[in-house]
Design a protein around this nucleic acid. Structure first.
Lengths: 235, 235
DNA sequence: CAGTGGTCTAGACCACTGG
DNA sequence: CAGTGGTCTAGACCACTGC
């Protein structure tokens, strides 16, 4: 018995879905019927079915049964790391500046803070092969206990700063990748020509209620950035 | 009993990890000990632990026990769809051309085919608000049965074409996002200025052995593309 | 109402790990 | 060897669905 029974059953049912014997929203046999069909206990059948539910091939409706799902393969899993996405070797991140400012209109909107709230701004320069290739700026509403000493900040990540006042598991992040012609400040920093666009990776850090608790933008030279991912099976 | 017992136990253990009572690679109590601690059967404890394993907070070693995992929150899940990433409304994809060519050096490399193999090329134009904003080109080594009639191709997706000779579940995809100054052909198509870069989304379709069975590039106007994702907890 | 999935118990045997 | 997790059985009660 090299392969557990529940895996064999899962494989068998998966094939029925894969090879089109079952199509979207078709009902499956009931757990009890599958028990007799495969001559196993209910727990074993449930284990098999739970695998297929995890794989997004099935869903269950209490009191009704199991049904096959419409599949969509257009989800990609990306490993995103500020240094990982840069092209080149000898990549490093260097703290440029930490300051406390009054929020701009854009920050009032993104962080949903009042205009008199103070905002901690953390700026980093990212190097690849000795050249400046990206500029990273993070905004966090000031709270007591937030690290603002440069020495402390240099070695902790964005979520870690945020998480110092909440659990890291209650923090969600949204990310968006787009391109724009950057402001002059960034054109100079990244040594760009006048109308060169940059890749902007925008991060929104949210608490468990979906309220913003941090906002960041990474401006990256368009020739020095590459983001890679692999497909996963989604709903 | 609003919340099942196994969820309460999972929450309890999750908090111990979250709030730092347990740190990376610390051993957990054994299943048996947890059974007595919470006064439940082994299956209930196992259900709780399996949730935390799925959440990437724990891993188990047969014969030894459960251990807490080092967490890494830098994984993002992206929903990727050729039309979804375009900015604007009234988005549509239109078939431009289908042809069969001899592979270029680049295609021989990416598709690992011999120079005398024929390649099916499928070109689409993507519109947003009536304007051409992206150009999509897909390459698939010719095989008998591949749809090459324009009418047929217009309504099926890249993976579906590929999957006609294999199961869709045996197909993997890799994706990479980068930016480049495009060739002249694309500058004209997308109405770009001479040195405007484009966003390139490169797709590699692989079979279960990792061998290439398709290759595609989407060239998108840099102002008309935005890719969004959400964070997931990874290993 | 009978049938479904969701939860849960109290056992069992196995392969694996460590001392 | 005793202890661990991995697999599996044969029951049970519940809330929910459709008729």
């Amino acid at each position: 018995m090299a392969e557990p029974v529940y895996l064999k059953i899962a494989d068998d049912i998966r094939k029925q879905i894969t090879y089109g014997l079952l199509s979207a929203n078709d009902p499956l046999s009931s757990e009890k019927e599958l028990c007799s069909k495969y001559s196993v206990s209910r727990m074993t059948v449930r284990k098999s079915l739970s695998i297929l539910v995890d794989e997004n091939l099935l869903y269950s409706v209490p009191g009704k049964g199991y049904f096959t799902k419409k599949i969509n393969r257009d989800k990609y899993l990306f490993l995103f790391d500020e240094l990982d996405i840069l092209i080149g070797s000898n990549k490093e991140s260097q703290l440029m500046e930490v300051e406390i400012i009054k929020p701009t209109a854009e920050l009032i909107y993104h962080l949903r803070v009042s205009p008199d709230k103070r905002i901690v701004v953390i700026k980093h320069l990212l190097y690849s092969d000795g050249e400046i290739v990206a500029y990273d700026i993070k905004y966090i509403p000031y709270f007591t206990g937030i690290p603002i000493v440069e020495k402390e900040i240099n070695y902790i990540t964005f979520p870690e700063i945020i998480a110092s006042r909440t659990s890291i598991f209650d923090v969600h992040r949204k990310i968006a990748i787009s391109m724009e012609i950057p402001p002059d400040e960034i054109i100079n920093l990244l040594n760009l020509s006048l109308y060169d666009p940059v890749i902007i990776i925008q991060q929104h850090i949210l608490d468990q209620e979906g309220l913003p608790i941090g906002f960041g933008q990474l401006y990256c030279h368009y020739k020095k950035c590459r983001i890679e991912g692999i497909s996963v099976i989604g709903e």
